[in-house]
C-alpha cells in the first residue's frame, strides 16, 4: 500500500477535530492492517489532532503510508511549547476551558502519543511545533 495526503487543522475547531484520524483509520481498516495497530495509530493521530486544535494557531497533518509503516507529521504555526519535557509530564496542561468542556486538557495527550508511537520526534519554537511519528505495521 502506498498513500499520502494532507489535512488542514483549524484552531479551536473542536466540532471537526478528528477528521484526519477518522479518515486514516478507515483507510488502514480497508487495507487490512491489524486492529491493535489501527487502535494505536488512531489514538496517536487523534490526540495529536486535538493538540493542534486546542493549543495552536492552526496547522496541518500530513501522512505517508507504505507497506511497512505509517508516518504522520503535524506542523503548526505557533505559539510553540515552552518546555517539551514539562509538556510530556502526566497531568501538566495549559488547555483552556473550552478544551476541557470537550473532554481534553487533562495533560496526558502528548505522553499518550509518545507511548502509542514506535518513533516520536517533536521540535518546537515560538514559530510553531513539528511532531513526527511513525508506527510500524509488524
Amino acid at each position: 500500500m502506498q498513500a499520502t495526503g494532507k489535512f488542514v487543522i483549524e484552531s479551536m475547531d473542536l466540532d471537526n477535530a478528528g477528521n484526519a484520524s477518522s479518515t486514516i483509520k478507515k483507510m488502514l481498516t480497508e487495507a487490512g492492517v491489524s486492529k491493535s495497530i489501527i487502535k494505536r495509530v488512531s489514538i496517536a493521530i487523534y490526540e495529536a489532532e486535538i493538540n493542534v486544535v486546542i493549543h495552536s494557531y492552526g496547522g496541518t497533518c500530513t501522512y505517508y503510508i507504505d507497506d511497512e509503516k505509517i508516518r504522520v507529521v503535524f506542523e503548526d504555526t505557533g505559539p510553540g511549547i515552552e518546555d517539551i519535557e514539562q509538556a510530556l509530564e502526566p497531568g501538566f496542561s495549559t488547555a483552556n476551558n473550552q478544551a476541557i468542556t470537550y473532554g481534553f486538557g487533562a495533560g496526558m495527550g502528548l505522553m499518550n502519543i509518545k507511548n502509542a508511537s514506535d518513533e516520536f520526534d517533536i521540535t518546537s519554537s515560538h514559530l510553531g511545533t513539528t511532531l513526527d511519528i511513525k508506527i510500524y505495521f509488524n
Binding site: 478528528g18 487502535k39 488512531s42 487523534y46 470537550y102 473532554g103 481534553f104
Partner: peptide, 17 residues
C-alpha cells in the same frame, strides 16, 4: 458511559472501537 455530550465523545468512541 459519559456525561460528555460533545462531538469529541463520539470521536473518542470511534477511535477506540
Amino acid at each position: 458511559i459519559t456525561g460528555n455530550v460533545t462531538m469529541q465523545s463520539i470521536r473518542t468512541a470511534e477511535m477506540l472501537d
